[in-house]
Every structure is written in C-alpha cells, then in structure tokens.
C-alpha cells in the first residue's frame, strides 16, 4: 500500500499542483472555472500534448528526441505545399506526412542503435535536418484554404455552457489513452521501461533492444507528425519556423509530469498533467492581460526547478529508508 503510494507520489503531487493552480485561478477570475476555459485549454495544448506523449516514451526508454519541434514545423510546411501547391486532398497529404515523420523518427532510431550514438546528438542533427527541409520546401508561411480544414475545425463535442471538445482535443485525449494502454498493457511498453532501466540487463533478459529503439523513435516521429497536422489545423497554415522550441516544452512537460530524464521511471498520465499545467499558466497570463507572456516561461522555469528538486528529495528519502537493507 505504502509502496504504491510512494510510486505514484510524483504523479499525485503534479496533479495536486494542477488542481490547486486551477482553484487559485478560479478564485481570482470568476469566469475561469468554466467548461469553455477547460475546452480551450485542451484544444490550445493538443499539439503539445500529442508530442509530449511521444517524448515520454523516448525518455522512458532512456533516450531523448530533440527533433520533434522541427518535425512539427516540417509537417505543417509539407501539408501546405502538398495541399495548396500540389493540389492534393488533405487526407492523402496527412497520410504522407505521417509516413514521412514516422520514417524520419525510425531512421534516427536506427542510427542511434546501429552506431551506438548518443540520442542527444542524433536527434539534434535530426532537428537541423527537419528544420532545413522545411525551408527547402518553402520559406513562406503558406495558408491552407482547403474546405476540409474548415469542416475538420467545426467538428466538436459540445458540453456544458460554452464548452466544446474540438477535434485536436479529442485526438490528444485519444492519444493519451492509447499511450497509457501501450505503456502498461503491451510487451512493447514493458520493453521500453526495461530499456530505460538498464540497457544491458534488458538485452540479457531477451528484450529486442534494436527493434524497440527504432520503434520508440518512429513512434515519437509519428506523433510529432500528428501534432504537425493538428498544428496546421489550429493555425490554418504551414510555416517552417512553426513550433520552434516545442521539443523543450515537451521535455518540460515530461519532467514536471514526474518522469525521470534518465529513463525507466514515469507515467504518460503525468506528462498529460504536465502539459495542462503549462497550459494553465499560459491561460492565467492571458486572463490577467497585463503580464508579459514571458512570465509563462519564468513560471514554468521555476516550476520545473521545483519539481526536479522534489524528485531528488523523494529519491533521497526513499534511499535512506528502504524497505530492506540494500547493502550488497
């Protein structure tokens, strides 16, 4: 019982921060506690949430993926060029974009595994390549005017007073649920945690290390591609500078959500909550109206710092107490 509590403590703390934060906002602004705000919170952060799920998997496996922001940018450009310049149907363009993004991730995973390269460097290179490819396609911001975009943006589940669950929000929630299942109810998920725990042991226990590594980066790329689609729906345009720095926002969400950067420990749900906390801070600053939007960054920076200290503190306390003597 207590051990279960210990394991979920980072998650519980993160969730408590979200709830308390929301209540504080609601106390200050009467309009805050509404379905409308909740719905917008989900919609505005959908692309971030989808990307962060992929990042969670990569970090759980002991890696990192710095290319996701650039992949989102590239995807939006690719979609805009295919649809507007090429005259493609958006659905066909979506399929191509997902395949391209997933394949790009898989290629990075392959390089990481085959050449035993640090993921940081490989995905850093991937970031430059993806960003550069976007510029090669076009340096302009290309508006997407296909009628399907309008239709897709109109899809929404309405609930409460003024609340609506947009397609991006639904996609994100769907991805989160699917990711939880993937993490805890499939062999792939167990292999990811195993890989993040100790690569060599995982290999000795028969975990297909290569396949899992390639798959996790492919998945991250695929989700970044999906996030790119959502982003282009959201902005109605494709621009190669879109989503700059999103890789760092997602890493932040993952860490605030209680996942350890060294891999092996963490939960997808935590990341989801981490994304919502970031969104909440942003919403607060919008509501306030007088604060510079950079306060968002400062608040997130402070929060990130506090969470890392908290994790460290928890680990130290556990190590000191330990159920059984740990002397080898």
């Amino acid at each position: 019982m207590t051990s279960a509590l210990q394991r979920f403590l980072p998650l519980i703390v993160t969730t408590a921060v979200l709830v308390v934060g929301f209540l504080l906002c609601a106390a200050q602004f009467p309009n805050f506690a509404s379905w409308r705000v909740v719905g917008n919170l989900l919609t505005d952060n959908a692309f971030l949430g989808i990307t962060a799920v992929g990042m969670t998997f990569v970090i759980l496996s002991g890696g990192i993926d710095l290319s996701v922001g650039a992949v989102i940018g590239f995807t939006t450009v690719l979609l805009a060029v295919l649809i507007e310049h090429g005259g493609w149907h958006p659905l066909a363009a979506f399929a191509v974009a997902l395949i391209a993004a997933g394949g790009f991730g898989a290629a990075m995973g392959g390089v990481i595994h085959v050449f035993q390269m640090p993921p940081f460097i490989v995905t850093l290179a991937g970031m430059f390549i993806a960003r550069g490819l976007g510029f090669v396609l076009t340096t302009d911001s290309v508006p997407i005017n296909h009628p399907l975009y309008g239709e897709l943006n109109d899809i929404a589940l309405r609930f409460g007073a003024g609340g609506k669950l947009s397609l991006p929000a639904m996609l994100m929630l769907g991805v989160v649920v699917a990711a939880v299942v993937l993490a805890h109810w499939t062999r792939f998920g167990a292999n990811l945690y195993a890989l993040g725990g100790n690569r060599q042991s995982a290999e000795l226990m028969g975990v297909p290390v290569g396949r899992t590594t390639v798959a996790v980066y492919a998945l991250s790329g695929l989700l970044a591609g999906l996030a790119g689609i959502v982003f282009s729906l959201y902005t109605g345009a494709g621009y190669s500078l879109a989503a700059t720095g999103v890789e760092l926002d997602t890493i932040t969400a993952v860490v605030i959500g209680g996942t350890q950067l060294t891999g092996g420990y963490g939960y997808v749900v935590g990341t989801f909550v981490g994304v919502l906390i970031q969104g909440l801070i942003q919403t607060y600053i919008t509501f306030d109206g007088t604060l510079s939007s950079w306060w968002t960054k400062i608040a997130i920076g402070v929060l990130l710092f506090v969470f890392i200290l908290l994790q460290k503190g928890l680990l130290t306390v556990w190590a000191g107490r330990g159920g059984e003597p740990a002397e080898a």
Binding site: R187, A190, N191, Y193, A194, G196, G197, N198, S201, A202, M205, G206, V207, G264, Y265
Partner: peptide, 13 residues
C-alpha cells in the same frame, strides 16, 4: 531491472 516490478521482471518478454 530494478525499475520494473517483481512480476514484470519475471515475465518480461
């Protein structure tokens, strides 16, 4: 794997 549960260690793969 120290980060996985005992059951998961027994049944990994």
């Amino acid at each position: 794997l120290p980060n996985l549960s005992v059951a998961e260690n027994l049944f990994l793969g």
